[in-house]
Amino acid sequence: MAKKQKRYAFLINLERCIGCNACTVSCKSFYDLHPSINRRFVRETSELLTGTPKRNYISTSCNHCDRPACATACPTGAYIKLDNGIVKHNQDRCIGCRMCATACPYGVPQFDPVKKKMDKCDMCVDRLEAGEQPICVVSCPLEAIAIVDLNEIDESQVVADLPGFADSSITGSSTRFILPKGTTVVRGGIKSWNTL
C-alpha cells in the first residue's frame, strides 16, 4: 500500500495552554532569532469562550495554510508550500519587501532588522525530517502543542476557528485547536459594593 503523503499541522490544546510563552522564547533561543522576532505568538482570546469568564489563550505560529497568502504576495517566490503541508520561506531569495506580512491574515512573517529579510516558522522541518518534534512542541511545559497529520485527525474533535483568530477559510489555515472545557464558577456577592 502506498504511504499517503502526510499533511503536517499544529494542534493546540487550549485546555492545557496557560499562555506562558515558553514556546515563543524557546524557539527564539533555539534558532538564535533577533530579539524582536517571535515565530510564535501567544494572545489572549475571549474570556467568555466557554461561557463563564476565565483566562483563555491561543498560541499560534505560522499556520501553514493551504492557500498561503504570503506565497501569492511574495514577488520573489520565496515561499513554497511543501507536499507535507509546511509553508517554507526561502530566506536566500527574500528581498525584505514585507508584502507577505501585509498579506498574511495572521501577520505571521516578521522583518528581521539585522538580516533585513523576513522570518517565519517552518515547523522545524529539519527536525521533523530527522524524526524529532519541533522545539515549541518539546518545550511546552504543559505539552499543549502537538504536530498532527491532517489526513489522520478526527476533525470533529477540533476546531480551526476561534475569536481573535482570522477566519481560517481565507487562506486555509492548517492549525487546529482543542477547545477548553468550561469551569463551574462560584463567586459570592459583595456586600460593600455601594461604598466602593
Binding site: 496557560i18 483563555n56 472545557k181 469551569t183 464558577v185 462560584v186 459570592g188
Partner: peptide
C-alpha cells in the same frame, strides 16, 4: 482571583 490555574479547574470558588 480567577487565575490561570483556576481557569483550568473543573470548579472555581471565588472566595472573599
Amino acid at each position: 482571583i480567577m487565575t490561570d490555574t483556576a481557569s483550568k479547574a473543573d470548579e472555581y470558588i471565588g472566595i472573599k
